[in-house]
């Protein structure tokens, strides 16, 4: 009877170990799915950051549109283009 209990214990432990190993395998599988979600989320985040950068670059370029700059500088700030006699050449001797 004593021997039989020991054998049962070994069987039980073996089953438990296999069970744990399978659980670990399952856990890894689930983790990989979880990583899939994370990867997708990060990929979306990267794309949206890239898009935001492009939107900002487009906005910056529109603000630097020379026609717009000229309209502001000449039209609103009343600056004038320098005339021929206003150019002064500085010669460093």
């Amino acid at each position: 009877m004593k021997k039989s209990a020991k054998e049962l214990g070994v069987i039980f432990l073996s089953v438990l170990v296999i069970f744990l190993l399978l659980a670990l395998y399952l856990n890894l599988n689930l983790s990989s799915i979880n990583y899939g979600y994370q990867l997708q989320r990060l990929s979306n985040e990267r794309d949206s950051v890239r898009e935001e950068i492009d939107q900002l670059l487009a906005r910056k370029a529109s603000l630097l549109n020379l026609q717009r700059v000229e309209d502001v500088v000449v039209g609103q700030l009343n600056y004038q283009y320098p005339q021929g006699d206003q150019y002064i050449k500085v010669v460093v001797e």
């Binding site: 320098p82 021929g84 206003q86 150019y87 002064i88 050449k89 500085v90 010669v91 460093v92 001797e93």
Partner: peptide
């Protein structure tokens, strides 16, 4: 004239509008 100023291709001499330092 616009390109000249923009690219800093200045005239060899511009008469009175020249300062020597």
């Amino acid at each position: 004239e616009s390109v000249m100023v923009y690219l800093k291709v200045f005239p060899q001499s511009i008469g009175s509008s020249e300062i020597r330092i």
